[in-house]
Computed example of a mutant assay.
Amino acid sequence: MTRIISSLAEVSAAYDALYCDLWGCLHNGRAPWPAAVAALKAFRATGGRVVLMTNAPRPNRFVEAQLDRMGVPRDAWDMIVSSGDAAQAGMFSGMVGRRVYHLGPEKDLGFFTEVPAEFAGAPTIERVPLEDAEGIVCTGPFDEMTETPEDYRATFLYAKAKGLKLLCTNPDIVVDYGDRRIYCAGALAALYEEMGGTSLYFGKPHPPIYDLARRRLAATGVEVESGRVLAVGDGFLTDILGGLAEGTDTLFVTGGLAAEDFGPDVEAPEPALLQPWLDARQISPTWAIGRLR
């Protein structure tokens, strides 16, 4: 049974590293939550490593710049591993061809221009119109503030007829931007699969992003056993399922995407509401907390 805790400090001594989600845990898309920042700083002060693990469809350098603009202090984390990082490896390996159609906003162009060092000598990836493409790279809707997956049904019918694979750089279905809920690349990839197309995933809950996190920790001289890692997140289908599949303990932040299901106080989920919600999904996170603190 999942135990509700009031602070990360209650259980942090059992872990050497955190795989901590961003949206819904550390920030709301516009500003960080001070209590979450303080919790991560306190964990690092005891020698723990904080890996910010995000399904953002951009290389980590762009995520870092976004966090800087929000005012997230650098001493709250050790490294950033993004879905964009893991998906880049798939793209530059040629998993959807070398001539690709980019489905996504211009803010994600760094996904194509920031070539990882290990692929510096790889053949060029060219962005082309859909009719000339060998595959699709999806970083989200063109206009995430107004569009829904249904806006792309005609595009996907054409892509499916051409037999194109879709590389999904962000498996999240939705995120909350301030008080607004917006669709992510995962929602588009799910629709494409529903229509009979093939989608490839690299972020949480899929293995590539966790493999990348382990490699990057090892590169700093840190080898962490799965049992000493805590996966923290508000995305039940991404953060929690991904952590469980990797053999790590999990901390479900109930005050994120599913906050309205657990009572009026976002900081204090009601056990009588939380446990049936978890039972219906037949999976139990190790811990639960209203907001990361």
Rank of each mutant, 00 (worst) to 15 (best):
A161H: 09
R3E: 11
E193G: 15
D249K: 05
A268W: 09
H206Y: 15
D21W: 02
E114H: 14
F156L: 04
P205D: 06
E193T: 10
K165E: 09
R99H: 06
V72C: 13
P207R: 04
R153K: 10
I240G: 06
Q66H: 14
T46L: 07
S226A: 15
D265L: 08
D176I: 09
A288R: 03
G97W: 07
N60E: 15
G135M: 00
T220R: 15
G235Q: 06
A268G: 08
V229G: 01
P271E: 08
I173H: 13
P285S: 07
A14R: 14
D249F: 05
T2Q: 08
E223D: 14
I4S: 07
L237I: 09
V175T: 12
A65P: 02
D108A: 07
G90F: 07
R216E: 11
E126N: 01
V11H: 06
K162A: 13
D16C: 04
K204C: 14
R30V: 13
E150I: 04
C138T: 05
P123G: 06
V232P: 05
T169Q: 02
T220Q: 14
G140R: 01
R127M: 00
F119P: 00
H27C: 02
A76C: 15
A213T: 13
P269Q: 10
D179A: 12
C20I: 12
P141T: 09
K107R: 14
A45P: 08
A56K: 04
R99K: 15
F252H: 10
A39S: 14
V100Y: 03
G290K: 00
F119M: 01
V100N: 01
Y101D: 00
E260R: 15
A65D: 12
A268T: 15
A13V: 11
D279L: 11
S83P: 08
A39G: 12
V51F: 10
R181V: 11
V63C: 10
F236I: 05
A187Q: 05
G256K: 03
P32H: 06
G29C: 11
H27S: 02
E194G: 09
C20T: 12
P276A: 12
K107F: 09
G243N: 08
I125Q: 03
P59Q: 04
L244P: 08
I136Q: 00
R61H: 12
A231H: 08
S12D: 14
D85W: 07
D108C: 13
L109Q: 15
F202Q: 03
K160D: 05
T148V: 13
V232R: 04
V222Y: 09
L273N: 13
P129S: 11
R228W: 07
L217N: 03
